Amino acid sequence: MPKTYYGKYGIEVRTNEHNHKGQKAHVHVYIHGVEVGAFFLDGQLMVGNVKRKDRIAIEQLILSNRDEFQAMWDEFQKSAY
């Protein structure tokens, strides 16, 4: 699964083998390699506990790369898994 790194933040779009089909598009977020939560592509926290400072930075990263993440999500939704 492609994980993109932005300094200490890693953002991953997972394939269907790790998602339930029909879920709203989201990304999984890592800080220093440790998963801390998942965010919808509008920047809203889906699940997890992230400090406010990190949450603001992550929201900005997601929003500025939303089109790329959405394209990956759409492609992965077509997989047979």
Rank of each mutant, 00 (worst) to 15 (best):
Asp74Val: 13
Lys53Ser: 14
Tyr81Pro: 00
Glu35Thr: 00
Leu45Ala: 07
Ser64Phe: 04
Asn16Trp: 01
Leu45Ile: 12
Phe40Leu: 10
His32Gln: 07
Thr4Glu: 15
Val27Ala: 12
Met46Tyr: 10
His18Cys: 04
Ala71Gly: 06
Leu61Arg: 05
Gly10Arg: 01
Pro2Glu: 11
Tyr5Lys: 14
Lys3His: 10
Gly10Pro: 02
Lys53Met: 11
His20Trp: 07
Ala25His: 06
Glu35Val: 01
Glu35Tyr: 00
Gly10Met: 08
Lys78Ser: 09
Ile31Ser: 10
Val13Leu: 01
Leu45Val: 13
Lys53Leu: 11
His20Met: 12
Val36Leu: 10
Glu68Met: 13
Tyr30Ile: 00
Ile58Thr: 11
Gly33Ser: 08
Arg66Asn: 10
Glu75Ser: 14
Tyr6Thr: 02
Gly37Gln: 01
Val47Leu: 06
Leu45Lys: 14
Gly22Pro: 07
Lys8Ala: 10
Val13Glu: 00
Lys24His: 07
His26Met: 13
Tyr9Val: 07
Gly7Tyr: 08
Phe76Val: 08
Lys53His: 11
Glu35Asp: 01
Glu35Met: 01
Ala57Tyr: 02
Trp73Gly: 11
Lys51Asp: 03
His20Ser: 08
Asn49Tyr: 06
Gly37His: 03
Leu63Ser: 04
Tyr5Phe: 14
Glu68Ser: 13
Val27Lys: 06
Asn49Cys: 02
Leu61Phe: 12
Met72Asn: 03
Gly22Glu: 04
Gly43Val: 03
Lys51Thr: 03
Lys51Arg: 09
Lys24Met: 10
Phe39His: 02
Gly33Pro: 06
Val29Asn: 03
